[in-house]
């Protein structure tokens, strides 16, 4: 009995420990993959959203006016999108990992293309209720549709305009972020040890969202002067944390930087 118990216990204990470890590993993997997914997901989805966003903006306004009486179920999905200005990021995040999030983003792209169609559908239902006024209704509906289409065209144009403005704003923000990084690193670059020529030094760095360099800067092109290369590398490291943009859609562009130094040139 004792013998058996003694053997059983250790076996049980080991098995328990193993299962705990395995569970722990899986839990860790789950957490890790989840948190990692979120960041890359932002970047990958960015491009897709780029096109989607403006169109989504178009849909909300037309919806409220007409559907109110008739079709409540359909408008509902649309009203949700209106908060889209923010969703840019959220949708991207959700797009991949959580299954729940998908239904929301997917419906959006389809409705956008079918926007004109929903109106006919509304009419169809109305026809069923009031068959006598079919013609009038249909006429009216067509008029409505025409008006709505007009509105949509205008809104689309406005959206495109907004998109262009947003793109300009983003590229402006990108340039501003670049300038901030240049200013901070430049503060620490010491041309004194780079000889009298016009050396060029290239370093590649990968950044954490905190602006810290991951690992060490990679020397991509040497100046031919070891002390100069090292001085530039020290400048990069001392400039940590780099002032990278907080906006996720901008940060994505700053994860990998190729830094080209011309320490002895003046601008």
């Amino acid at each position: 009995m004792r013998m058996i118990r003694q053997r059983e216990n250790p076996v049980m204990w080991q098995a328990g420990a193993l299962s705990l470890v395995v569970h722990g590993v899986f839990f860790l993997l789950l957490v890790m993959t989840f948190s990692w997914k979120t960041q890359p997901a932002m970047q990958v989805a960015e491009v897709e959203l780029w096109d989607n966003l403006p169109v989504q903006k178009v849909t909300p306004p037309p919806a409220p006016p007409k559907p109110e009486p008739v079709v409540e179920p359909k408008p509902e999905p649309r009203p949700e999108p209106p908060p889209q200005p923010e969703p840019k990021a959220e949708i991207q995040v959700k797009a991949k990992p959580p299954v729940k999030a998908r239904p929301e983003p997917e419906p959006k792209p389809k409705p956008k293309e079918e926007k004109p169609k929903p109106d006919p559908k509304v009419l169809a239902k109305k026809e069923e209720e009031k068959r006598l006024e079919e013609l009038k209704r249909s006429m009216l509906a067509e008029d409505d549709a025409a008006q709505i289409q007009n509105q949509e065209v205008q809104q689309l144009a406005a959206a495109k305009n907004a998109q262009a403005q947003q793109a300009a704003a983003l590229s402006g923000a990108l340039d501003a972020a670049k300038a901030r990084i240049v200013a901070k690193i430049k503060r620490y670059v010491n041309p004194q040890v780079c000889g009298t020529g016009k050396p060029v030094v290239d370093f590649g760095i990968a950044l954490m969202p905190t602006g810290e360099v991951i690992g060490s800067p990679r020397l991509q092109k040497s100046s031919g002067i070891a002390a100069c290369d090292q001085a530039v590398e020290r400048a990069i490291l001392q400039a940590q944390p780099l002032p990278i943009p907080k906006e996720p859609e901008l940060f994505a562009s700053f994860r990998d930087l190729s830094l080209k130094f011309r320490p002895n040139d003046n601008n």
């Binding site: 997914k37 970047q43 240049v182 430049k186 004194q192 990998d256 320490p263």
Partner: peptide, 29 residues
């Protein structure tokens, strides 16, 4: 598997952003 997954995810990273730094303000180490 997770390693493969990670490399795939990170492999998708975009091309490095080029930033040029001309001159330098530090005179002393």
């Amino acid at each position: 598997c997770s390693l493969i997954f990670l490399t795939v995810v990170f492999g998708k990273a975009e091309a490095a952003l080029d930033i040029e730094i001309v001159g330098g303000a530090a005179q002393q180490i």
